[in-house]
Amino acid sequence: MDRPGGAIPVRLVVDVANVMGSRPDGWWRDRAGAATRLLAALPPLVGREVHGPDGGVLRIGEVVAVIEGAAKAAARPDGLTVVAAPADGDGSIVEIARVEASERRTLVVTADRGLRARLADGVLIAGPGWLNELIGR
């Protein structure tokens, strides 16, 4: 799974609602607009090597952003996969991480304790602060 440079390739799965909610910047007044801004910051992460939440080096091979509710109206930039959850985002994130964990390493970004508890063994987890720092938010 490691590449010659030592970085572990991962698929980054972002709980957009949870990351948006991590900063009191008025996101609640315009959820679609806040989601659009967050989504626009994610494509430049693809291909980057970053320090993971545990300190190891990760290479982000793909970004999957899960949106729900009013955020489904957000503009979807090229360079990432956007999944509009049919119900709650947590169920979609659990399913994406379950499928991906069997194929490659997955890193889920969320602070939601209930969601974290539902993730399969082997799924890496980071809080919104980790992602916010990466994207300068």
Rank of each mutant, 00 (worst) to 15 (best):
D2S: 06
R3Q: 13
P4K: 15
G6D: 07
A7G: 15
I8D: 06
V10L: 06
V13M: 02
V14Q: 08
V16T: 14
A17R: 02
N18E: 03
V19M: 04
V19L: 08
S22V: 12
P24Q: 15
P24H: 14
D25C: 11
G26N: 13
W27E: 13
R29D: 13
R29Q: 10
R29H: 06
R29F: 06
R29E: 13
A35I: 10
T36K: 03
R37Y: 03
L38H: 02
L39D: 09
L39Y: 09
A41L: 15
P43T: 04
G47Y: 08
G47A: 07
R48Q: 15
E49G: 13
V50Y: 14
G52D: 10
P53N: 12
D54S: 15
D54W: 13
G56Y: 08
V63R: 10
V63W: 09
V64P: 02
A65L: 00
I67K: 03
I67Y: 02
I67G: 04
G69P: 00
A70V: 01
A71R: 08
A71H: 12
K72G: 00
A73S: 05
P77C: 06
D78C: 02
T81G: 00
T81C: 00
A85Y: 03
A87K: 09
D88M: 06
G89A: 09
V94G: 01
E95C: 01
I96L: 15
A101W: 00
S102N: 01
S102G: 12
E103Y: 12
R105S: 04
V108M: 03
R113A: 10
G114Y: 05
A117F: 01
R118F: 00
R118T: 00
R118P: 01
L119N: 05
D121F: 03
L124G: 15
I125R: 13
I125N: 06
I125V: 15
P128E: 11
W130T: 08
L131W: 10
E133F: 07
E133M: 07
L134S: 12
